[in-house]
């Protein structure tokens, strides 16, 4: 089974194959990013604040273009609090003004209070530029793998090891 290691040509081909898989995945991700105009077009739900609509581990497809209308009240958006890099998925419940300077307030469906407490110090409202995208598509449970990986980091090493082994041991 380890015969491939003795054949440098085959080993190189396998390395190329592995690289091709990785770069294809990367291209698809970036391509989707360009189409949706969002830095991260697919996100995994990390908290239960939008239950029962979204559970932990559900996969959301985002859209960040305002082709037909502005981002409006009632849309579920993913936003980043200024100075923090944690994306939050909540629903817009208030909007004052129009255009990029419109003041937006969000709230999780499952939370009693709105998000004023979550925002940065001195920040009372979100602006359009804080928003990473509006949720348009939903797929349950698929993203749970990433939650497992981030909560149990050793799984990452194991998975990478298995993937590497498979690539090396695989013929053809």
């Amino acid at each position: 089974m380890l015969s491939s290691l003795q054949n440098p040509r085959q080993a190189a081909a396998q390395l190329m194959n592995f690289g091709l898989i990785l770069s294809t995945a990367f291209m698809m991700w970036k391509g989707l990013s360009v189409i949706t105009d969002s830095p991260s077009p697919i996100v995994v739900v990390l908290s239960g604040s939008m239950e029962p609509a979204f559970q932990r581990g559900d996969l959301l497809l985002l859209w960040n273009r305002n082709l037909i209308s502005e981002t409006n009240v009632g849309e579920v958006v993913v936003y980043n609090v200024r100075g923090k890099d944690i994306p939050i998925v909540h629903r817009i419940v208030r909007k004052f003004g129009v255009g990029p300077e419109a003041k937006l307030l969000t709230k999780g469906d499952n939370n009693a209070a709105d998000d004023t407490e979550l925002y940065a110090r001195g920040q009372d409202y979100l602006n359009r530029k804080d928003i990473v995208g509006s949720v348009i598509g939903y797929m349950p449970f698929v993203g749970y793998v990433t939650i497992m990986l981030s909560e149990h980091p050793w799984l990452k090493t194991v998975m990478l090891g298995i993937m590497g082994l498979v690539v090396v041991l695989q013929r053809e």
Binding site: N72, R94, K95, F96, D109
Partner: peptide, 17 residues
Amino acid sequence: SGSGQNATNQAVIWDSI
């Protein structure tokens, strides 16, 4: 602007799941 889909001020007063 009037009260179109893009009314200038819009706030949820009641919601239900």
